[in-house]
Simulated assay, not measured.
Amino acid sequence: MEAALKLNAKAIPNLPAGRHGDGHGLYLMVQKRGTRSWTQVVRVGGRRLDLGLGAYPDVTLKEARRLATNNRALAKGGFDPRHGTGGALTFAEANDEYLRWKRFPPPVANNRLSNQRYRWDYTMRKHVLPRIGTVAVAEVTVGQAAAIASAMIDTPSAAKFALSCIERVCQWAIDSGQREMANPASGPKRQIDVPPPTHARFLPAEELAGELAKLDASGCSEAVKLAVRFTALTAKRLCEVRRATWTEIDLEARTWTIPGRPNAKIKEDHVEPLSDAAMQVLHRALELPRSHGVVFTNPSSGDGVMPDSTIRRAMQRAGVAMSPHGFRSTFRTWAQERGENWEAAEISLSHRVGGSVVASYARSDMLEMRRVLMERYACALGMWQPDSRGPCW
């Protein structure tokens, strides 16, 4: 049972010098010269914190108890309750506390989860915090949340994401005792209709060579041309091709081992067989300048990895009528129409085949079957002639 509160509002003006406890770590400090101020002692992770809650009578006993309750809720959740607003948590401060509680990592290159953090930070900095950053999180209203969404109505998905950020921060504030009112973003969020996602544009396999010829005739760098061609031949994600290093390539075994990453779509290593046409691309890439061991290098970048935007802009300027991700759709459609082995095609796309039970029994990676599949696909693209044993480009 919680200890009874000891101080009485009427008796406070007559208290002698000293420290007078009210319970729950809240104290009224009375100086010999008669000044009075509120302090509170809390522990966060075993560490003692002494908090100043303001001077009496500017901060009344009732207000001091309210601030102390909020601070205890934060400390119980493992957060440092010290803030520059005298204990009233602003939305910006609540956002920081929520990210710490969620253990959302800061933005890091080549990390899907950190890219989500980048989008979160950008949305907060650009659209949310300028409007409600200094508002107490307990006082954020439905109208303020709706106004933020209205200013972004030309991009419904971005507006809905902004409201989702506000909703999650305010829900944390409610759960931690920093807010009593209902969540202000839930209602406006339900009112936004986001158009269904559009799939990446793709072309039939027989038309792909003509589109890549446009890129070859353009003025983009040789590294970009080879990276795009390698992406088309392997049907891999552009991010995997951009980050490919020579340590992942086995030229003798003619394989590319794509390392799994905890926060990526591929969480386990994936071995990709390389067709003759793909090997020809790699042999040409050996002649490119080396930087950090990256296959399709960009010497001007700090880590040697070619930016995603560099490749996409080059394709757009050359008039290529599809996106890099569309190469995967081209491959899967070709395999489907030809009646190729379904599992081999899915594994070639680095997709998980079946559920966990199926995966526990089906252990083969179908490497050699996929090697034959990718050879046939390279011929279908018009990038390799098996009779001449040479590329068609």
Rank of each mutant, 00 (worst) to 15 (best):
E287P: 02
V228C: 08
V169N: 11
R168W: 02
A378Y: 03
H270S: 06
V320S: 03
T234I: 12
L99N: 08
G302F: 05
A17C: 13
Y27N: 13
P13C: 15
L53N: 06
I12G: 08
S37N: 02
S301L: 06
N8M: 00
S114K: 05
K32H: 00
G382D: 12
G143V: 02
E167H: 01
R290I: 09
Q385N: 14
D387M: 07
G382M: 10
P204S: 09
S309L: 11
T123G: 05
R201Q: 15
A138T: 02
W172C: 10
T297P: 02
I347N: 00
V169P: 09
A147H: 01
R125Q: 11
L373G: 04
T134C: 03
V142E: 00
L212K: 04
I192G: 12
A232L: 13
W172G: 08
T60H: 03
V372T: 14
S309R: 14
T333C: 04
C239Q: 07
E139G: 01
G18S: 11
R338E: 09
G45C: 07
E93F: 11
Y377I: 12
P16R: 06
I249G: 00
A109H: 07
P106N: 11
K265D: 03
Q316R: 15
L74M: 13
L212T: 06
D175N: 15
A145P: 03
